[in-house]
Design a protein around this nucleic acid. Sequence first.
DNA 1: CGCAGTTTTGATTCATCTCAATTTGTGTGG
DNA 2: CCACACAAATTGAGATGAATCAAAACTGCG
Lengths: 252, 252
Amino acid sequence: MHANVKQNVIPLNVPGLKVACSQCNLRELCLPFGLAEEELERLDTLIGGRRKIKRGQHLYRSGDPFEAIFAIKAGFFKTDVLTEDGRDQVTGFQMAGEIIGMDGISTEAHTCNAVALEDSEVCLIPFAELESLSSEIRALQHHFHKVMSREIVRDHGVMMLLGTMRAEERLAAFLLNLSQRFTARGYSSAEFHLRMTREEIGSYLGLKLETVSRAFSRFQDEGLISVQQKHIRILDIPNLKALLGPPGGGRH
Amino acid sequence: MHANVKQNVIPLNVPGLKVACSQCNLRELCLPFGLAEEELERLDTLIGGRRKIKRGQHLYRSGDPFEAIFAIKAGFFKTDVLTEDGRDQVTGFQMAGEIIGMDGISTEAHTCNAVALEDSEVCLIPFAELESLSSEIRALQHHFHKVMSREIVRDHGVMMLLGTMRAEERLAAFLLNLSQRFTARGYSSAEFHLRMTREEIGSYLGLKLETVSRAFSRFQDEGLISVQQKHIRILDIPNLKALLGPPGGGRH
DNA sequence: CGCAGTTTTGATTCATCTCAATTTGTGTGG
DNA sequence: CCACACAAATTGAGATGAATCAAAACTGCG
């Protein structure tokens, strides 16, 4: 419906905002993954431009009409759901190269909020057009299915974490996950800056902020990490990992 | 492959063999939703047959190569993930009309186990062929995206439940969810048979089986439900719902 | 009819929450 | 540039909900 309008607009690429997946250094992580040169160029024509989101601003809110998904070009986001009765659950933290907004497909409206945790930039992918192009480029269709499926698998991991792990195990899993994702993006796996507050970490992990803080302190006392506010340095990955799966160690 | 044969067969409904979405009484809940007559017939040719799964048997296991997704024709399933260190998390319970197996798309291998909790029957939907047909039938492509997205939204709901609710709230949410899904399938919303054990409910809800049992007993004492082993009758839906979102009642 | 698996119930322990005080960090305006 | 106010984080003490351990009752199946 909206698509018709955009379809006839020449994809002139506004000031310095040359939006080209084919040139993007995130293409191996993001939607373009696995596409051939020529397919990539067609994908370029699809992208509906970039959008900058300042720290604290919403990319979308629960209830907003769903029109597009977003590829994170730079920055850091959180998504959260809130219920009528005031419960608030952070459902994920997203970083460069990740696709965000797929929750909105099912009802044509977003079902969660996406907030930038630092100044960020996203590429807008109009969904109707993505579906059109998917019909023509099988690799794109398949890769998009993988992206959605990966999201489902990721959510299962979080359910496992929330359903079976104790506070320190959850935090260890969280840190290792962040570390791994930073590594995949070429950043240090050992040293990074948390973009979210203790309360947001707690919400994500099903814990109170005080519990998160205590677990951080404990990890530091044990020499596993060094924490100074939002600055984290991971000192002992093996023992952090050992915290997760202690077949005979953790049960009492 | 199988499809070619059936294409020329008159849609007479041979017992258990002739698989036709167009004739299925679940079509409004399942993959065919929203398709036109003629599209439905093409969907019929896609379905790779039916498969019966006896109670306790696996539909697929974590690690199995991914080839197809499944539409549940009849019966009841659970899906669960287990980690090396022996943790076990039930990630969902699925009933007739629901699509199962999409976790496998991302890695080409299933990432969880699907077990029948009663004698069941599924329709096999070869995934490569589904993608082919999706390219041709836009409505099918779009609906499939909605199905995947719905799964993501559902998972967010579970994360909310696990992350923010107390034991009795979780169980109330669980019962109301089951009730609503039974209603949508034409069964009683008030009276039903649990197919899963207390332990499986507990795993899904992040609780121990004793806690689940105690919560059931408490609900019965309070006149909210009547429980006799696996037989549940919901007596007071309003007050069960009130348990969930007590804006001023639940915090202490 | 007996046995194994499931469920219920009780007593106790423990992890996390809650409440509260203090410290540290951050952004703003004089 | 410093002081102030506010937000975020740390830490402690005590309360509490759910886990654990244990035993008994029930169910259904062979």
